[in-house]
Every structure is written in structure tokens, then in C-alpha cells.
Design a protein around this nucleic acid. Sequence first.
DNA 1: AGGAAACCTTAATATAAACTTACAGCTTGA
DNA 2: TCAAGCTGTAAGTTTATATTAAGGTTTCCT
Lengths: 223, 223
Amino acid sequence: MKIMIVEDDLTIRDMVGETLEKWGFETVKIEDFDQIMQVFLNHDPHLVIMDINLPSFDGFYWCSKIREISKVPMIFLSSRDTPMDIVMSMNMGGDDYIQKPFHMDVLIAKINALLRRTYSYMETQSQTMEHDGIILNLENGEILHGDRKSELTKTEFHILKILMKNKGIIVSRTKIMRSLWKNENFVDENTLTVNIARLRKKLVELGKEHFITTKKGQGYIIQ
Amino acid sequence: MKIMIVEDDLTIRDMVGETLEKWGFETVKIEDFDQIMQVFLNHDPHLVIMDINLPSFDGFYWCSKIREISKVPMIFLSSRDTPMDIVMSMNMGGDDYIQKPFHMDVLIAKINALLRRTYSYMETQSQTMEHDGIILNLENGEILHGDRKSELTKTEFHILKILMKNKGIIVSRTKIMRSLWKNENFVDENTLTVNIARLRKKLVELGKEHFITTKKGQGYIIQ
DNA sequence: AGGAAACCTTAATATAAACTTACAGCTTGA
DNA sequence: TCAAGCTGTAAGTTTATATTAAGGTTTCCT
């Protein structure tokens, strides 16, 4: 499990990082606070530890930026502990709040509890997604329709998964592109179009037309 | 959402129950502490609030009993607050820990955060705005009226959203135009008129006339 | 009532977003 | 090392939708 640490106090950052590694977690520490989003997109961590007081923008700001694109579990750290701070943290999309100074044992226990809550269902979670007769096998990237099946490439699979996960909701092209190519922001806009076309072609070959709808100027939707 | 409260102090139990109900939660309060498992099985709550100090068996015991059969989210309450208590709570399968005495705001915030995390599908329940029978779906840009529906383009959607957000208030044409076209101040005044017309046409097709009223010289209003 | 803003209607036109098709660089594995 | 399939690029095309244009209403003030 990979944990991203956003904390400007070097002592705390190192201590937390070291302890987490001792516990077998992989850590990603933010050093340049202008690069938070890029680092997040690059590493796609399983959990984020976020200090509230940071240089320039604060932890709440970065939380809401991350929440625009991800539901990653997040624990706030802060030396203040009025009820308002706690309520604020939760309302911004945080999952827990720990007051500094804290015992590492407590942090570890809370991280474990939150990871268990977030990812445990994954084991029992069904290995397929279904919508309107199309079954997407998450294990091997196959799509089924009736008795016909087809294999998707990595990119096609990724696109279909994100669209099916958001069925009934318009997913913008930039959101898909960010999710596919992280911060390699030099990939052509058209690359997505081509991949969508390839995916659609396979769906049509299975006898499924109009599965992905284009919302011009807005994105794509499965409904 | 149904919340089970396991707390022997009558004052706290009632206060928590009352507040939760004020927030729209259904509550199940334990009165007979030999019946915890039966009540749990009967009601199948979405979340459990568990005091640690209870008559006969303590909260940890009941937590582990419940964990044998369910992954229901659980928040512990206790007046003690050594790191050990917190760590213990988490390790027993709890999701959070609140020290007594606590602010109800904090409890509510933690409950909401935990429910959000556990039943994340709640977030996918569609976000809408409603006024006078017209429902605007913010996630797929559709408008509904009774059983009829219509799809909006990006511009139409933007206009309707800004008008519904300001329902009962006159929104000036310049305000709408600035919001739509930012600083491209070279777009024709009439462009807005045409888009309003198209939007109205779709509303009429749904059987809704006079939804957007023109206030000559002032702007448009939905009332 | 008369006139002029302000706004509406309809239809033609322009445009940017998305699509199609073809191709070439890679990777992978036989 | 060569074939097969994946992936991104390029160039040209289509199309949904915004914009323009031109003439028609409504509203409101004197």
C-alpha cells in the first residue's frame, strides 16, 4: 500500500515516513508544494496524510483539488483541535483527523482502519461490471454481450471502466485523459478520440450500437 | 440511513438519538444490553455507535461479536482517551473513536464521513436542481418534466443552471453573457437571445410554458 | 397613439469538437 | 528476427452546435 505524505515540517515528515516504511508501507513525500497534484497523479497513492497548515495553499485547498478527481482516503493532521477544525476536515472530504502531537501508534491504527474500510470490500467485490447487456470482466479485460465476446486492449479497458463506473454521468474528455495519461500532458487530444473509436468498433462487432454517447463539448456518457 | 446506538448513559443516549433524528437519521437505541445481537440482526443498521464502558460485557466484546457477522461501520465512544484505547478500538475492528465529552457537530461530521466512505454509491446518486416540476440533472445535462425528458447542449445547460441557481432573482443578460463567454466580449448580444429561445423551445416541448420570464431591460427570471 | 429600444424568430452560415482512416514506431513473444 | 498487435500521430472529413443576419414582435415611455 502506497501512502502520500503532505507535511512541511521536516521532522514530522521524516518520522512519519520512517515509521510507515517500518510497517511495510510504501511512502511518497511531498517536497515541492507546487507539485502536489502532479505527484498525486503520478503515484496514485492508496491513502493521503495531509497537514492543514502548509506554505501558500492549505491542506483543505489541496484536499478539495484531489477530491475533484479522486476518492482516495485522506487523514488530516493539525496542531489545532477545535471542534470546528475537525468538522471542517470531514466536510471537505477528509476521513479522519489527528491532532499534533500524536502517537505513531494511533496514526498507524487509524491508517489501518481506514485502509481496511476502503479496500477490504475489494476482495469480495464482484469481478465484473454490467450495464445494458454489456459485461466487462475486470480480471482479463474482456467484454461480453450475449454469447459473443471480445478482448480489450489496456487503453480501451481503462476507458470503458471509467465510463461504466460513472454510468449516467457525463465524463469529460480531460478527466479521461488525465486518468489515462497522468501528467504526460503532451499526448494529442485526438489520441483519445481514436481510442474511443476503437472501443466503439469492438462494441458494434458484439452487436451493441450507441453504447457510448458523445456529449459534444462536455464529454462521453453511458446511460 | 439507520444508526444503532449502544450507550448505557441515558442522558447521552437520548441526546445523541435526538440530534441524529434531527439530521434525518433513523435511530435504534439499545435498552436491554442482553439483546444487542438480536436488535442488530433485526434492524441491520448502516452504522453503529458503541460505548466502551457498558454493564456486563464491554463495547470491545460486542464489536468483535458483530464483526463475526458484519462489516458495519462502527464508531466507539469513551471517556478515556489514552493512545492505547484508541489503538485498541481500531484493532478490534472499529472505524473511529470519539472521546467524551464531545461536540455533537463532531460526531455528526464523523458519521457523515464514515457513511460517505462506506456507502460511496451515495455520492453517485444524481445531483439535481428542481423548480416547479422541472428537474435539471447536473450530471448528464438532462431536463425532466413528469415522464418526459430532453437533453440540453452545453450552452443551454449553463444558462438554465445559472437561472435556477438564482431562482426568484432577476439575472441580467450581461451577467449570463459574462458567465458564458468570460472575457470574449466580442460575441453578439443576439447569441444569448437565440440560446434562450432554444432552451425555451425544449421546455415547451416538455409541456412547460413560461418557465423563463423576460424582464425587459433587466434580464431573465425563474419564479 | 407613435416610435424606439429591447427582445424574439427563423434560417443560413461558420466553427470547433469529434470522427475516420491510414500509417509508423514500439513491444512482445514465437 | 520477424510477425502480430498495441499505441499514438497526422491529415482530411463530418457534424453538432454556436453564431450571424435580417426581419418581426412586444413593451414601454412621452
